[in-house]
């Protein structure tokens, strides 16, 4: 009886996780398609004024990159420092392995992993 109850609980928890995951995946894919559509539209609009738009696009991409790096450093300090002294930067391929290991061990979220990897490999 107790085993059945435990099995039922495990199944319930798994089902909830599956449901949450599917919902979030849908949300993310919708967001991605929306942003792709917006980017496509802005690209089409910017064709006639290409020469003027390029430096702006470059500037905005650089500032986005900088923001991502700052956020990456913040996540790095917050997540890595929870268990150990934050290490120095490693070469990109070393960091890719280490971050995959930490994703499993420290259960980093996908977003944290992406931002930390970006920060640590730049």
């Amino acid at each position: 009886m107790r085993r059945n109850w435990m099995l039922f609980c495990c199944f319930g928890v798994t089902a909830c996780l599956v449901r949450t995951a599917i919902a979030q995946e849908h949300k993310e894919s919708e967001k991605a398609s929306e942003s792709a559509a917006t980017a496509g539209l802005s690209a089409t609009n910017s064709i006639p004024s290409h020469d003027r738009a390029s430096p702006q696009a470059f500037r905005s991409s650089a500032s986005e990159d900088r923001a991502a790096r700052i956020e990456g450093e913040k996540r790095f300090r917050t997540n890595c420092g929870r268990c150990h002294q934050p290490p120095h930067k490693f070469p990109p391929r070393v960091m890719a392995t280490a971050i995959r290991h930490m994703r499993v061990r420290a259960m980093l979220t996908d977003e944290d992993m992406r931002l930390i990897l970006k920060y640590m490999t730049q």
């Binding site: 599917i22 990109p92 391929r93 995959r100 996908d110 992406r114 490999t121």
Partner: peptide
Amino acid sequence: SFALALNPFATPVSAQGVSDEDVKPVP
């Protein structure tokens, strides 16, 4: 139950991929 639980993930996994795919990890 475990297999059923994992199955719905098959499509999103292949669609999304993981975030370190730009950098090839080394042993």
